[in-house]
Design a protein around this nucleic acid. Structure first.
Length: 594
RNA sequence: GGGGGUGUAGCUCAGUUGGUUAGAGCGAUCGCCUGUCACGCGAUAGGUCGAGGGUUCGAGUCCCUUCACUCCCGCCA
């Protein structure tokens, strides 16, 4: 028998009445009636009401004991009368009459209450994370995270994947995010980098012949935080498979996601087979490569309309002549919405830095007409053409944005979310997954005008080698894909390029010489020269999956010990100063500003 | 690096056009209370109004600077 307890705080029932028990936990709440004291004792599993009265010699002492003190209680289980049962807790039929108790861990005055549903400032929550984590909601989120991870681990093993660890101290890579660097004591002046992802290692595992690999892998990127992006570190379900094509990866991940989400959430899945949307189509229809498919609004391109003689909307016409494009969003049956609805959206767009959103509503009297500030600029024929392109009907409204393609994609994507939220079109009780496929291999850097890899330089270009048009690199598509759920990017993946010659060729287009590649990616390129299997994989973000399952908007709500936005750990005081001896040993000196 | 929001008691917040001694709930301390489950009742302590400067007879309130937290843009292959 345990020294500390015979039962956990969620275990006692009517059938235990008259048993002598001991339970241990935190004092969650006291209700003091002067000669009678109720103590709610809480542990990881639940809450049990304990009771003590003035007859007991320890009464006065317990009455004065702080909340969140850890105590062990010995006592007898008694039945509660009908009117005093608590249906909200598992142990509500009984209570424990305290005969004696022992303080196991004292507690100072609390900087923040544990028993409360109140929201607290992030700063105090992070500083006293161990108190914050005792609170019900986040305690349950962290338990959910644990269960999801062990479920995924189990599924992956069942699917024939082997789990391997890869190095945490590795080399800095020129592509991608900023690295976290670690100075090397034994190699003065040289640095390790923490892995942004185990990208090269997982490919090396395939070259080593292990066929199917996975890992719940820590990844480190020194970039600024967002609500759904921890600063510093996060976790991926990293996986890689040999002798596969894109579809094989999709099948595995779809099965895994569908099972996981059905197992851990009551929300509906919009698709069991996830739609596959080409990148170019996603950018047109949703203005984004991470569309929220719960949102029914679709973006249409109607630039051509503004070259018509019978359209006199001169501002747009001029812009279109100079190469701008016009895209639209149709809202169904919004003819009765007040003027303020439309104007608010226009004003909102201006706040976002756009030039605003023009709008009108399709009406029909004798003939089709457009109601709204710019409606008069469109002939009936032009309106009919717009209705055809955008699948709009009488009674629908249309929002118009004009701009260069990049700006246009951005503002229409934001507007699509904004309008759908205003019209309450998004079903919060649904998960909508999709694949975004056919990413371009390269893109042009807006600033430097140079060609660079648009995603992963190790991705395999599509098509037979002899058919690839290296003269027009921007037209080359890659076997590169993203998985998206409810507008959140869960992961990128790819079929990898396992052919060294092709790799050199692609890197040369992005401005890397053969010797650059040999130097920066020596491990990889060398390995690919000794018999590499075709392989590919993906790495869904664990934190974001748990965030979706826990219905949280902020990643810190599913992270046990997160850092704040400035990448500081307020509880552990990291990062911190180091002493002179440490610096000396590492051959480093600190340059102070100014 | 840039933009927005917030900052008043240990915690959550109120504080009007600038005007008396800056308030409430929770928590803490003390007292009363034997059936509560957000127990109830009474009292007490607790404030650099984020910091610095300015305007003014007078600043929590207006202006400037700055700091912290947070959300967003940039960034995140």
């Amino acid at each position: 028998m345990s020294k500390y307890r015979t039962h956990k705080c969620n275990e006692l029932r009517k059938s235990d009445v008259n048993k002598n028990v001991s339970i241990s936990g935190w004092i969650n709440k006291k209700r003091d009636h002067g000669n009678l004291l109720f103590v709610d004792l809480r542990d990881n599993y639940g809450i049990t009401q304990c009771i003590i009265d003035r007859e007991n010699k320890n009464f006065l002492e317990l009455e004065k004991t702080q909340l969140e003190t850890v105590i062990k209680v010995n006592g007898k289980v008694v039945n509660r009368s009908d009117e005093t049962r608590n249906k909200d807790i598992e142990t509500g039929e009984i209570e424990v009459v305290i005969s004696e108790y022992e303080i196991l861990g004292t507690c100072k005055e609390l900087p923040m209450p544990v028993f409360s549903d109140q929201e607290y400032a992030e700063e105090i929550r992070l500083k006293y994370r161990f108190l914050d984590l005792r609170r019900k909601k986040i305690h349950e989120n962290i338990i959910l995270r644990s269960k999801v991870i062990s479920y995924i681990r189990n599924e992956m093993t069942n699917l024939g994947f082997l789990e391997f660890q890869t190095p945490i101290l590795t080399s800095s890579s020129p592509e991608g995010a900023r690295d976290f660097l670690v100075p090397s004591r034994l190699n003065p002046g040289k640095f390790y980098a923490l892995p942004q992802a185990p990208q090269q290692f997982k490919q090396l595992i395939m070259v080593s012949g292990f066929d199917k690999y996975f890992q719940i892998a820590p990844c480190f990127r020194d970039e600024d935080a967002r609500a759904d992006r921890s600063p510093g570190e996060f976790y991926q379900l990293d996986l890689e498979m040999s002798f596969v094509e894109q579809e094989d990866v999709f099948n595995i991940v779809e099965t895994l996601m569908v099972n996981t989400f059905k197992n851990f959430s009551d929300k509906k899945l919009m698709y069991d087979i996830f739609p596959k949307i080409p990148y170019s189509e996603a950018m047109l229809m949703y203005g984004s490569d991470k569309p929220d498919l719960r949102n029914p609004l679709i973006i249409n391109e109607i630039t051509e309309i503004f070259n018509r003689e019978d359209v006199t909307f001169d501002i747009f016409k001029k812009l279109v002549k100079s190469g701008f494009k016009v895209r639209s969003i149709t809202t169904k049956n919004t003819k009765d919405k007040p003027r303020s609805f439309f104007d608010n959206i226009d004003k909102w767009a201006k706040d976002q830095g756009a030039s605003g959103l023009a709008y009108f509503t399709f009406e029909k009297d004798n003939k089709i007409s457009a109601k709204g500030p710019v409606g008069k600029f469109f002939s009936e024929e032009a309106l009919l053409e717009i209705m055809k392109i955008t699948k709009s009907e009488v009674g629908d409204s249309i929002f118009l944005a004009c701009g260069k393609q990049k700006e246009l994609e951005k503002i229409t994507a934001l507007a699509r979310d904004k309008i759908a939220n205003d019209l309450n079109l998004i079903d919060d009780n649904t998960f909508a997954f999709c694949w975004i496929v056919n990413y371009p291999m390269f893109e042009k850097d807006e600033l430097t005008k140079k060609i660079k890899f648009s995603h992963n330089p190790f991705s395999m270009p599509q098509g037979e080698l002899k058919d690839i048009d290296f003269e027009n690199p921007l037209d080359i598509l890659a076997f590169q894909y993203d998985i998206v759920c409810n507008g959140i990017e869960l992961s990128s993946g790819a079929i990898r390029n396992h052919k060294p010659d092709l790799m050199y060729k692609l890197f040369s287009i992005a401005g890397y010489s053969k010797s650059d590649v040999d130097e920066k990616f020596s491990g990889m390129i060398n390995a690919l020269s000794y018999g590499a299997p075709p392989h590919g994989g993906i790495a869904p973000g664990i934190d974001r999956i748990v965030m979706l399952l826990a219905n949280e908007k902020n990643i810190r709500e599913v992270t046990m010990f997160p850092m704040n936005q400035n990448a500081q750990d307020l509880m552990m005081n990291a990062p911190s100063d180091i002493n002179q001896e440490q610096l000396k040993e590492l051959n480093l000196s600190i340059k102070t500003k100014n």
